[in-house]
Write a protein that binds this DNA or RNA. Sequence first.
DNA 1: TTTTAGCACTTTTACTTGACAAGTGCCAAA
DNA 2: TTTGGCACTTGTCAAGTAAAAGTGCTAAAA
Lengths: 329, 329
Amino acid sequence: MLTERQNKILKLIVEKYIKNPIPVGSKVISKAINCSSATVRNEMGELEKQGLLEKTHTSSGRVPSEAGYRYYVDNLMELKKMNGEDMLKLQMVFRNQQLALSDVITKSLQVISDMMNYTTVVLGSKSHENLLKKVEVIPIDDENLTVIIVTDKGHVEHKTIKLKDVSLEEVEKTVSLINNLISGTPIDEVGKKLEFEIKPIIGNYVKQHEQLYNVFYHVFTDFTNQEINVMGRNKMLEQPEFSTNIEKIKNVFNKLDEREILSNIEEDDDNNIKVYIGNENNIDSDVTVIQTKFKKGNEEGTIAIIGPKRMEYDRVVGLLDYMKKNIER
Amino acid sequence: MLTERQNKILKLIVEKYIKNPIPVGSKVISKAINCSSATVRNEMGELEKQGLLEKTHTSSGRVPSEAGYRYYVDNLMELKKMNGEDMLKLQMVFRNQQLALSDVITKSLQVISDMMNYTTVVLGSKSHENLLKKVEVIPIDDENLTVIIVTDKGHVEHKTIKLKDVSLEEVEKTVSLINNLISGTPIDEVGKKLEFEIKPIIGNYVKQHEQLYNVFYHVFTDFTNQEINVMGRNKMLEQPEFSTNIEKIKNVFNKLDEREILSNIEEDDDNNIKVYIGNENNIDSDVTVIQTKFKKGNEEGTIAIIGPKRMEYDRVVGLLDYMKKNIER
DNA sequence: TTTTAGCACTTTTACTTGACAAGTGCCAAA
DNA sequence: TTTGGCACTTGTCAAGTAAAAGTGCTAAAA
């Protein structure tokens, strides 16, 4: 348990360091609270013993450790009211009545990325929560065929395929079978249903039924299991902790491209705003992910903001809170 | 006009520098051709006077200038036969009979990006070359509606929109009007046709015709005017000329995200393989873009490979040539 | 008991210095 | 026309120095 003064000092150090990423010395702190630098040094030593602060070298000022950030977020941070300008920018997006919810979210996270210089992510609902709504087939020329799949959440995917020696009627018959028999099925179970419910039937009247079955099977299994939208990826380059370290950047950029890692973001089950600092997330030990789930009607998903550990926690949490409330009403 | 020997020296320098990005001295060259380093130095001085070589400092070896690369590409480069391994990897993609052409191209450029460590780009045909094939509307819930647009090239886009106080029948009637009256129109002219051919008609029997018209108008004008696919963006970080220079990276990454810049790639009108070195392209003075158009049936587009000026020109040109030929037959 | 002044100590950073390597330009001889 | 040779330039690396920033600790003050 920390004393009042220790809390005060830790808070000051974290906030100073967030503003300006250079180690914080005892002198600046001693000016801010009313006591000598020696006293501050003693307290800093104690905070370091507790694992909340670190030194970059024996005689440097202090930097918050991962545990320090954690403690700050859990105990010291005060939620910041959004400033008028930020709110105005977001209201411009929210006010637009014509936009569907998913567009509103995407656009406003784009705005947030620009105003904070952090990367933002929107994750849609997972494939097992998306039910097949409709399959549509549109012939492009005598060889190619575009297959369009729509889910009940309005997620659309399409793929153009080549079919040989299969008549259009055969294809259309198959599609109408699919629409009649297995729409309403979760996307990731469609493959199974195709095999057991559609394949036996079309076997009877489609010459190239094996081929036709294979094609549809692939279209459905290639269906991405979650819509993922990353915005402001390049903002990562603006952060001093990364802009001097190509290896970090490579890692972060590669992770942002890996769908599996990103979809891990959504693991948590409750509805609050979550902060994953450094090693607490799967992306990189030097980033923090702040995220929250949202749910409105039958649409749900997760929005996340990714930045350096030295993130403006209070501002970001405030923003996400505002976003969430605006989405859900 | 250069002498035989000058050509030889320039070629050697360019190729050595491409292999290993350190300035090339007279000694190594003198060993490769049969004469003394002093002679080589004289020739190098001459090549520098002609603007084909540069020094990084007064006593450094030489580095090819932009004009040097250009001269190399135009006069000295010998086309390289593809090696068996590269060919094998690509054949694996080409052999897959089930893939539609656009997937074959995308997949093989992904392979090329991985084997060369360069960024690759595929551009589809422009919107004025894409004719509206079909509009499809799928109701998601009582407020939202997914609109799907398919072009004759198999390019698909979709958008979910909110409609208030418009009945489903009204929407469907409008859509069938669009499909009957203006399918076959180039995408970028659909807006106009909507206004003059559809709006007057629906005005008669749709209550909220203004709203309905606006929604469709926006869907069509938001249609991206060209499909652009960038692969291996992160490969840029592997190039030593960029990995030490964050500002360069920022610029290149931002350019790769700007559709306008990329679509400039397609400006040229003939069918050959084009090389745009440094300032000859719009992306960055330190990159080279090698590109070619392809055309098969009614599908056409451009494929491009983007790397440092110090690019393996012969290998890349060979690859693109191979790609082009394989696509077109 | 807590706070503080003060001092010795450590480390980083920015410069300088010197030695060496790599490479050039140019002159004079082959 | 080519080449050997030499003076000269620049970059790099290691070592050294001085100043700046900050710490820990001790002993005195509150």
